[in-house]
Design a protein around this nucleic acid. Structure first.
Length: 484
RNA sequence: GGCGACGUACCCAAGUGGCUAAGGGAGCGGUCUGCAAAACCGCCAUUCGCCGGUUCGAAUCCGGCCGUCGCCUCCA
């Protein structure tokens, strides 16, 4: 298995520190607002990484944190006139609502910053003792900063030199800091802000320290994989490395994995540009599985351009799978043994799994893996066109569907029954007709067809079509679908 | 200014030294069908931003140019 490591800038063989055990820490979200499609991408990417590692037999411990104390939360609380805790709780709940619908598995541990204040204080204390950090007066209390220049490897992840950073310094100059690049480990709290008691008086943690505290506590001093969005590389992950390695004297993470951005009109989606798309709003319009498929159809490190058109394409792809599934359900064995063409599909079936794994082994190439699944779907349909009727052929076809669903499961795709795909679309599109009513009309139409009353039959079909329902006449019955 | 990524058909997107350049969407043609608008099948890049170079051989490696984007500030 090969994995691209941001730290070394190249593809490396994946070997966990301890045989088959993998500890993964991914940076979660700051709970101060609804999650957007960029958060969704990151969540989906790491969800697939974890699923695939487990599929490969690794024993995975996955930790994803919630940042539940931070400036943005405090600001939001002030704006809404509620407490910071209420803001954090509310948006943690909203996070789960969205992520559950996207099929994201819960992490094994989902720690919150505010539950690890003691651990953070301990680390900050040690960093001061070791000479990596210093406290500065801030009125009644003190703030603690990490002295970047004391850590000789600073910049190794983001490939930046301290000197270059100083030049470009858009960081506001703060006289009390030794260097403008120094970052806060502990912040003295201002009046009205939340605070915790500490050796430096009333204060609250800086942003980066929580990840060091929580990852070390729940996984260990060296993580197998640490990941997050590419925008976290600098300064967040760079700072994490500095404070963690200064604290433990050991490498912080073996592999660093970062997912690319979601762009809109070729620009990174961000609050400041005002072009964010909430997951919530998208789920009003599109199927969650389609959104997931869209996010997985490009390599995780490439930027993905968002466009409504592309989500519709993903829906069309899914429809192709579920349509094939319906077709398979319709198959009947009409002769014992073989109809003599099983060899036309068997070799393709036998190599499917290997090719799929090969794709994901190559730095989690989900786009390629999806291509392989659809290539097989195409072959499967082609095979069914030959009207196989032997027991052996039908069995192979049914097995093929099971294989597609099993492999799809690694990406958490293809898990619904075909009928549920259409039922869900019926709800999503707010189509003004119930399943029962459709069935009634199909029944009525069948009668009309038997009487060769084509006019009435077409009338019913047209009526449903106008609502977005498509009827498909099969040899012995008619099935309904929702138009994509 | 410093660092980095990318540019593959009408659109999205794999492929990073050598079989016919995956897959999907759109389009077109056909099969099925009472009809079909669905489904299914087939067709759809002698060519990979441009110009040079390395090589028996490059979309894939090297150099230059053009274009797009990102990080250097909170950010998935």
């Amino acid at each position: 298995m090969k994995v691209y490591n941001t730290l070394t800038g190249r593809l490396e063989d994946f070997e966990p520190i301890e045989d088959k055990k993998v500890g993964i820490y991914a940076c979660g979200v700051t709970v101060y607002d609804l999650c957007h499609i960029g958060h969704a991408r990151s969540a989906v990417v790491f969800d697939v990484i974890v699923r695939y590692l487990r599929y490969k037999g690794y024993e995975v411990k996955f930790v994803r944190n919630f940042t539940d104390i931070d400036d943005k939360i405090i600001n939001r609380a002030n704006k809404e006139g509620i407490s910071w805790k209420e803001v954090a709780e509310k948006y943690t709940e909203e996070y789960y609502k969205d992520m559950d619908r996207l099929g994201i598995t819960r992490a094994d541990v989902e720690p919150k910053a505010t539950e690890h204040i003691t651990e953070m204080i301990e680390i900050v204390n040690t960093l001061i003792e070791k000479g990596y950090a210093y406290a500065v007066d801030e009125g009644e209390a003190k703030s603690v900063y990490f002295a970047v220049e004391k850590f000789s490897d600073y910049g190794k992840l983001s490939k930046k030199k301290i000197e270059d950073l100083m030049h470009g310094a858009r960081v506001e100059v703060d006289e009390r800091k030794l260097s403008p690049l120094d970052f806060a480990l502990w912040k003295a709290s201002k009046p009205g802000e939340p605070w915790w008691e500490s050796p430096w008086g009333k204060g609250r943690p800086g942003w980066h320290i929580e990840c060091t505290a929580m990852s070390i506590k729940h996984i260990g001093q060296t993580l197998d994989i640490h990941g997050g969005g590419a925008d976290l590389i600098f300064p967040h992950h760079e700072n994490e490395i500095a404070q963690s390695e200064a604290f433990t004297g050991k490498p912080f993470a073996k592999y660093w994995i970062h997912n690319g951005f979601v762009t809109i009109n070729k620009e990174k989606m961000s609050k400041s540009l005002g072009n964010v798309l909430n997951i919530r709003d998208l789920l009003e319009r599109y199927d969650a599985e389609a959104l997931r498929l869209f996010l997985l159809s490009s390599h995780y490190r490439s930027p993905i351009e968002f466009d409504h058109e592309y989500i519709k394409e993903a829906e069309a792809m899914l429809d192709r799978f579920y349509s094939t599934s319906i077709r398979i359900e319709e198959l009947k064995v009409s002769q014992k043994g073989s109809s003599g063409i099983v060899f036309e599909l068997k070799p393709l079936f036998d190599t499917l799994k290997g090719k799929f794994e090969e794709a994901l082994d190559d730095d989690f190439n989900t786009a390629k893996a999806i291509g392989i699944l659809f290539e097989f779907i195409k072959e499967l349909n082609r095979f069914m066109d030959k009207k196989p009727s032997g027991e052996e052929e039908i069995c192979l076809i049914k097995e093929s569907e099971r294989a597609l669903r099993e492999l799809g499961g690694v990406l958490n795709l293809f898990q619904r029954k075909a009928i549920d795909w259409y039922r869900d679309l019926l709800k999503l599109r707010e189509i003004d007709i119930t399943e029962d009513e459709i069935e009634k009309l199909i029944f009525e139409r069948a009668q009309a067809r038997r009487e060769k009353n084509w006019q009435r039959a077409d009338e019913i079909r047209n009526e449903l079509f106008k609502k977005g329902i498509i009827l498909e006449d099969k040899p012995d019955k008619t099935v309904w679908k929702v138009k994509i």
